Simulated assay, not measured.
Amino acid sequence: MSGQAASHAPDAARIEALAREALARIPSPFAEHLADVVLIVEEFADDETLDVMGIEDPFELTGLYHGRPIGEKSAFDSGALPDRIHLYRRAILDEWSDTGVSLEALVSHIVVHEVGHHFGLSDDDMHALEDAAG
């Protein structure tokens, strides 16, 4: 990284690029179901989302899956919005700073966790998926 790039926090485009790379590493059979998932990078979750989640501090929410889990989808969903994974840049950067984990590893962890929700996976299943996508 050049000196100038190192002095600036990663922007939304960088977070999105890392998230797309993480999605691309997710193995079959999950990968086939992720083609239509939309990635959205925002600074923070909005107040309505935080209220629904029961979260007061916007720095506590790094990502969120919006949509119906795979097992609940139906052929009658044609008019529904696409599934979305929201990533919250400021919360991610805060966790990155606090943990010392690489930004690539952190974004990958968040994406895999949200994909896990998409498929209704348990925490153990998500850890196995994360290992496979690592």
Rank of each mutant, 00 (worst) to 15 (best):
A9D: 15
P10M: 04
D11F: 01
D11G: 15
A13E: 13
A13Q: 14
I15A: 02
E16L: 09
E16M: 08
L18K: 06
L18C: 06
L18F: 03
A19I: 10
R20W: 08
E21A: 15
A22Q: 03
A22H: 03
A22I: 07
L23N: 04
A24K: 07
R25I: 00
R25Q: 13
R25T: 04
R25P: 00
I26S: 07
I26W: 04
P27M: 08
S28H: 12
S28T: 12
P29V: 08
F30Y: 15
F30N: 07
A31N: 07
A31K: 11
H33D: 11
H33G: 13
A35I: 05
A35D: 14
A35G: 11
D36M: 08
V37N: 12
V38M: 11
V38W: 09
V38P: 02
V38H: 12
L39V: 05
I40F: 02
I40M: 10
I40K: 14
I40R: 15
I40T: 13
V41N: 00
E42W: 01
F44I: 02
A45I: 04
A45M: 05
A45F: 04
D46W: 02
D46I: 07
D47P: 10
D47M: 11
D47N: 13
D47G: 07
E48W: 02
E48H: 07
E48I: 06
T49H: 04
T49F: 00
D51M: 07
D51S: 15
D51L: 09
D51N: 14
V52T: 11
M53S: 08
G54D: 05
G54M: 09
G54Q: 10
I55K: 12
I55W: 01
I55T: 13
E56F: 02
D57V: 06
D57S: 14
F59Y: 13
F59H: 11
E60K: 07
E60T: 00
E60S: 14
